[in-house]
Structure formats: C-alpha cells, structure tokens
Design a protein around this nucleic acid. Structure first.
Lengths: 75, 75
DNA sequence: AGGCAATGTGCCATATATGATAACCTTTTA
DNA sequence: TAAAAGGTTATCATATATGGCACATTGCCT
C-alpha cells in the first residue's frame, strides 16, 4: 500500500503538474476555471494539492487545456 | 463541459482499461483487491465503470499491477 | 447434481471531493 | 491612490467515492 505521507506527495505533484500545464498554455486559474465550469478557488485547491481529484475532474481539466488526459500523467 | 452521458462513457472506458490491464497480468479481481488493500467488490465496481475513481485509487491500482499510472490512460 | 472460484450487485457508514461564496493578499495597471 | 487581476484560504452544503459486508450470479470442473 501507499503510506499516508506518500499519498500527500503524489497529489501535490499532480497539482504542480497541472499548474505547469496551465502555464504552458499561458492562461490564468480564472480562465481555466471558466473552461472547466468550476470556481477559481477550486482550481487553486487542485493545484495546491489539497485535494485528491477524481478521474472526471482530470478529464475536465485536460479538455480545458486542450490536451489528452494521458499528458497530465507524463511527469 | 462534458455532458452527463459522455462522463458515463469515460468512466466505463476507464473501467474496461483497468480490466484489460489486470487480464494482461493474469490476476483475478480478488488478487488485485488484495494488493490494493481494498475489497474485491470495489474492484468489480471500478471495472464496471460504476464509480468515478480518485487519483489515489488509480495510483493504488497501478502499483498493484506494477505499472506506471500513465499506462492506465493509454487507451 | 454438487462444489468451487470468480465476479457482480445491493446496502450501509464514513470520509472527502465538488461547487459555491466570501475574505484576504500581492502585484500590476490606470 | 484606487482598482483590477491573479492567487490563496476558510467554510459550508451536497454529492459521491471508499471500505466493508452479505448474498446472488456465472462459469468451470469432477
């Protein structure tokens, strides 16, 4: 199994990856949130690695960034 | 945004992909569940596409299958 | 038929992701 | 100075994922 502290690291890394991808597209959290149809505060939460997102949330982010979901996992 | 019915399709496809990967490893749902430390019924639920799994759940599955998470998304 | 393993389904309690709002901080722009 | 933009954090209600158990179903084998 994956220990508690490593789980934290995993979602923090995912958050950083999403931020990285967003920066590559040159858009703000607010713009990403608009595309995803959720609030900008929730994008911040996601990028900060303060939540363990579901698959569909990641699909929405990928769609908003106009990339394939698989790209998110290419750390 | 992603319409309701398409979301269903997405998680069903993900479930099928996980089943496919499990078959490649030649293990049963019960064995995968053991590795992941969750109940076998939950693996069934996951593969049937009846849940929208979180990132960490997918990490656990990947670890149990001895693959990288990114592999799961190579449909 | 009977037994066995693998899988599927329903249900429950608990934890937590999501959606939303508001307050706040910092930096940039007017 | 003021306002706007970008980002962070806290908090809340609601939906749902997870973990767990029991039982049903399917298929395979003797």
């Amino acid at each position: 199994m994956i220990p508690e502290n490593e789980q934290e690291i995993l979602i923090k890394r995912l958050g950083k990856r999403i931020r990285e991808l967003r920066h590559e597209k040159g858009i703000s959290q607010r713009e990403l949130a608009l595309e995803c149809e959720f609030e900008k505060s929730n994008v911040s939460r996601l990028e900060a690695g303060r939540v363990n997102p579901t698959y569909l949330t990641l699909c929405k982010v990928a769609q908003a960034l106009k990339i394939e979901v698989v790209e998110i996992f290419k750390f």
